[in-house]
Design a protein around this nucleic acid. Sequence first.
DNA 1: AAATCCTATTCCACTTTATGGAATGCGCTT
DNA 2: AAGCGCATTCCATAAAGTGGAATAGGATTT
Lengths: 272, 272
Amino acid sequence: MWKGESVDTTGEQTRSEAEQVAGTQTITRALAVLGVLRDAEDDVGVTELARALGLHTSTTHRILRALASARYVVQNSQTERYRLGREALLLGRAASRALGFDAALPLLEQLAETTGESVNLSVRDNDDAVVVLRVESAHPLRFIQPVGTRIPLYCTSTGKALLAFGADLYAELAKLGELARLTPDTLTSPRELLADLEQTRERGYSVNYGERIPGVCGVAAPVPGEVGLAMGAVAVQGPEVRMPGERIPELGRLVMQTATAVTATIPSGYWI
Amino acid sequence: MWKGESVDTTGEQTRSEAEQVAGTQTITRALAVLGVLRDAEDDVGVTELARALGLHTSTTHRILRALASARYVVQNSQTERYRLGREALLLGRAASRALGFDAALPLLEQLAETTGESVNLSVRDNDDAVVVLRVESAHPLRFIQPVGTRIPLYCTSTGKALLAFGADLYAELAKLGELARLTPDTLTSPRELLADLEQTRERGYSVNYGERIPGVCGVAAPVPGEVGLAMGAVAVQGPEVRMPGERIPELGRLVMQTATAVTATIPSGYWI
DNA sequence: AAATCCTATTCCACTTTATGGAATGCGCTT
DNA sequence: AAGCGCATTCCATAAAGTGGAATAGGATTT
């Protein structure tokens, strides 16, 4: 039944995620359902959800009912489709407090005020970084990156800070694969990137000058964890016009200062 | 085994919650674990968690491993205890967006600025209300109520708005039980409360003048849902000194206006 | 310093629980 | 009017989670 000799279209891409943890299939599936809902732009139907995860509609429906009865998801009474619910919201608030992000926010706010630019805190997530906390610049022209945004490692200040101050730099570089050219300034050769990362290590902060999005710059510093490796990164981002070359060292200094301060707000013994 | 002839201390209080949804025991248990972690002040150990839920440590541990491998919880490397993790945070952000709270926030912010007082949006949750969105007053002396706070129905502006504009007023009143006297101004008789609620219905907004906490006042209006009943309430809260009697009608008008505007931001077809 | 207690964690036979094939009913399109 | 796609329900099957028991480590007590 599980091998699925009758079903041929689905049940192939799911394997890699689902087989991570043995003995807890149901929970893993439920969390996968929440994950799809999290990334969905709009409401999702049972069939659509089942297809995305390679599950049966029957199974998916049962999972959704469990989640709905706990109010982690809500069902649209008209379309019968689902989206995240109230309890998911409250869980997030509690997590923000538990992980010390509530305490880190004022530090980011101060950095945003001092520099006048958007500030965010990101952490590593598999092959990307993901924004977990942010403060927006007050300028009409500002850089926006909502919480939850996934950003590539090789062409962003945040990503380069995580790489440069993470474990196993060379292994990481080998894993990156092709460095797609996103702008004329993107570092597309491993050699160039390595040189940039070594410079980042020396300086203590990373710089991105339009390598991912033309006209957008960033300066980032690692948030040191228990063993000294980066467990996250604080970045200041804004348009090139407001971040001329001569301003970078000062921004670097400020970002490093904030990143170090953020460490103290994050409960020790954890690796977010 | 499930009846537990050997185990006698646990497994009694759990029944009521766990038996709600049939066919999804595992998920319900996992969500219950998340719920305990959500409400916990500090990190929680496996045994403690198991005891709180009437589960076996073995089961609890397996659930935690599943949640941890999806990063919904993290384990302290030193104490081996657990707390909420990064994915819980991101889920909350997505839920906030999906439920339209991101859109409602600016409306509350404007009300907070206009009135100078703390503002929150709350929804009904079983026998209480729960704060889902809030904006704090800028005053040094301000009323603070973090998101997730549970507040009683009978002695708060929010709660009275939910009661007065909810379904089945008389059934609700009967369910309330004893109206504990929290302050000299608490309405402790059903008769008084009913009169207040009827007045609330006529006015369109509810008023709490130190009925729960001495010196703290609130004015709240219902957020009308699809069928006209309150699906939530917007409240302005502050110290008595800044909210004299003659200011109440104006506050009521503003709160009603905001509450109505909030309705438009919440996706239709849902009942948060 | 040994003993005791209380942890988190692992293992594995058992059986409860989730599974998914099939069927239903509804609404929309062909 | 038939056909499709959807959410939903049912139920025999077996796979998955369960929990008793055992292990190992740390902290506190004797």
